[in-house]
Amino acid sequence: MAKSIDVSDLDIYYGDFLAVEGVSMTIRARSVTALIGPSGCGKSTFLRSLNRMHEVIPGARVDGKIVIDGQNMYDADVDPVQVRRSVGMVFQRPNPFPTMSIYENVLAGNRLNSKRMPKSEADSIVEKSLKGANLWEEVKNRLNKPGSSLSGGQQQRLCIARAIAVEPQVLLMDEPCSALDPISTSAIEDLIHDLKSDYTIVIVTHNMQQAARVSEDTGFFNLAGAGKPGRLVEMNPTSKIFSNPDEPSTEAYISGRFG
């Protein structure tokens, strides 16, 4: 079910404002691709364009193509709701639904996709997803407690369980650890390692060590200049980016000499 993503000549606009310009990249299936770069360089915007979540903001639109499995997601006849069902997303701050139990949170996406499912099937989805998110052992005895009763790191893993419960082709993560402590961060990173055998994962991170630890490929985004749109400066295997990058500005950013 994991699919590769081909992005070509993608421009992203908010109204008349060009936020991200000319991104072309190939994201490999069953691997982790990290996007790094300074704040405001458009990496989160780009990530959100991968499942058309940026369209939630009025006036946002894109030019260019994003092809998953031979289908351009921005073709006129493609329903953004369908795109989001096949490209899951995990956000910066954990956002379980506060009025739902842990159990119902995991099933939230499945409840949307199918009208009725037998209890046994629901149980097995919940168990499988929570195990997939390394959360099962911690919550199996309190599935009916509200999702908000968990710690921040557990909530984030609950959100990952919720995202993988619908078996998406791609999993997008927008700085999933930036609101978490180091122990929870390490738990999520371990989880990302486990998940990449089944999913194509794209992760935005501010933490370069994290990018180096979890990803196979890394894309470095930067602004072309003050007031100019963000662009993809370099995309290479992570080991190359962090040892011998092609672009001097990538090296400047990674070595902390960024200005």
């Binding site: 499942n51 979540m53 956002n95 639904f97 949307l112 919720r162």
Partner: peptide, 27 residues
């Protein structure tokens, strides 16, 4: 209604109405 929760619903593939039922009404 927190944008965070609305986005969570939309990212799961909820339509606008489903998002409202999942997040706006309970809130």
């Amino acid at each position: 209604t927190p944008v965070l929760h609305q986005e969570a619903a939309l990212a799961l593939g909820a339509t606008r109405w489903e998002m409202i039922r999942m997040t706006v009404f309970p809130y």
